[in-house]
Simulated assay, not measured.
Amino acid sequence: MSIYDYAAKTLTGQDVSLADYRGQVILIVNTASKCGFTPQFEGLEALYRAYKDKGLVILGFPCNQFGAQEPGDAEEIASFCSLTYDVTFPMLAKIEVNGPSAHPLYAFLKKQQKGVLGTEGIKWNFTKFLVDRDGAVVERFPPTTKPEDLKVAVESLL
């Protein structure tokens, strides 16, 4: 299995295959609208705008598993991201990232790049996974890593 074997739904309910992003550098982030890390949307959007023409795509996956900080439905999430942070990178449908109902993509990501002390579970919103142009999950960043601190890692893969 590779990252390209997975699919998700957009906020509007359309199916999207990660194979559509083959050849691009992908940053996958579980997001939330009412979190202390929510201002990272601004940095993620800046990173996306700076590097999208060089082959970076950011995929946001809303998740309500941490402190119920993403309570909205798809329309509310889309509106919040657009109106508050002018997000233009793809936002996918709300998913779970931990537990028995975790999205298969996240089960894969967590096995490929473990967290602190080898743990797999996502600890909080805005955990980030960096995927190279060949679909290999090369790095995992904790929520405290700011998007602007990812520039060197992203540039090295572009």
Rank of each mutant, 00 (worst) to 15 (best):
K52T: 11
I95Q: 04
D134T: 13
V154P: 00
S2T: 15
Y48A: 04
K9P: 01
A153K: 13
L130N: 07
K94P: 08
Q14R: 12
F41M: 01
I26W: 02
M1H: 09
F129Q: 05
D20T: 15
A46K: 15
P39M: 07
K111S: 12
S79C: 11
Q112D: 03
E45A: 11
F141Q: 12
A50W: 00
K9Y: 13
F141M: 11
E120N: 09
K94H: 08
S33T: 14
G121M: 10
A74H: 06
E42A: 15
L56D: 15
F126A: 09
A153V: 10
K54H: 14
F41I: 02
F129K: 06
E139R: 12
K34N: 14
H103I: 10
S79G: 05
E42L: 10
G36Y: 06
T10Y: 07
L117K: 05
L150W: 05
M91G: 07
L27C: 07
L59V: 10
P143C: 08
I77R: 06
A32T: 10
L117N: 12
Y6L: 09
F61Q: 04
G13N: 00
A7W: 11
P71T: 04
G99S: 06
P62G: 06
V116S: 04
W124I: 07
Y21R: 09
A68N: 15
V57R: 12
I28P: 03
A102Y: 08
G55R: 14
Y48F: 13
Q112P: 05
G67H: 04
T31D: 11
L92R: 03
W124G: 08
F37L: 15
D132T: 11
G118W: 03
I3F: 13
I77N: 02
T127P: 00
D149C: 13
K128F: 01
G135D: 05
M91I: 15
I26Y: 01
C81N: 03
L92Q: 04
G36M: 08
N125C: 01
A74K: 00
Q69D: 14
A74Q: 08
I58R: 08
E96F: 04
F66Y: 02
Y4P: 05
G23P: 04
G118V: 02
T145E: 10
T10F: 07
F89G: 03
Y4V: 09
L158V: 11
V152E: 15
